[in-house]
């Protein structure tokens, strides 16, 4: 190859890019590591913004359209920033039978947010997951990464309101 390809520079001097770079380096900057790298970006920054997608694309030499295609194919990746706190309601079969729809409706009515939306103050995002494998404790909710089983409306309110008051 005649043209030399220089390593692209990180979008900012944010330290978190070092973590992203480490993931790419560990995978030998292989195109196959696209999903791994996007995981790292998402875990580090909370979401995938355009500069991040461009940077990953350039670093791994994956076409922009492929990066966007992958980022929008998988549920776990999000292109929008999330709220400070996330509340993930499981919508697997067991949870569905045992009351998730009512919980979702409750959240929508009380806090005015639907699946994938964030409260106006940016505090709480409501997300759903297709079965988190906690069927025996249905309905299950993951509050900021901590799973809770047999969640009632009261429990949910308690947590969400604590967040909103914080």
């Amino acid at each position: 190859m005649i043209a030399t390809i220089t390593k692209p520079e990180a979008p900012s001097d944010d330290k978190r890019w070092k973590i992203v770079q480490a993931t790419m380096r560990r995978n030998g900057y292989s195109r196959n590591a696209l999903i791994e790298t996007l995981h790292t970006v998402q875990n580090s920054f909370g979401y995938l913004d355009e500069p991040a997608l461009r940077y990953v694309a350039a670093s791994l030499r994956v076409p922009l359209s492929n990066v966007y295609g992958v980022a929008t194919f998988y549920h776990l990746f999000t292109l929008k920033p999330q709220g400070e706190h996330t509340c993930v309601l499981c919508t697997g079969t067991a949870c569905y039978i045992k009351g998730t729809p009512e919980l979702l409706q409750h959240v929508e009515e009380r806090y005015g947010i639907r699946d994938g939306e964030t409260t106006e103050d940016g505090k709480v995002s409501l997300l759903t997951a297709r079965c988190i494998g906690a069927c025996s404790m249905a309905p299950a909710v993951v509050f900021d990464g901590e799973m809770e089983g047999e969640v009632t409306q009261e429990q949910l309110d308690e947590q969400v309101e604590a967040w909103m008051a914080s």
Partner: peptide
């Protein structure tokens, strides 16, 4: 050129250009 790609999935798939 790899300009065109596929974004989204299911009934919401769309042809995209670069980063949509």
């Amino acid at each position: 050129a790899f300009t065109k790609g596929i974004g989204g999935r299911g009934i919401d798939v769309r042809i995209i250009n670069d980063l949509n």
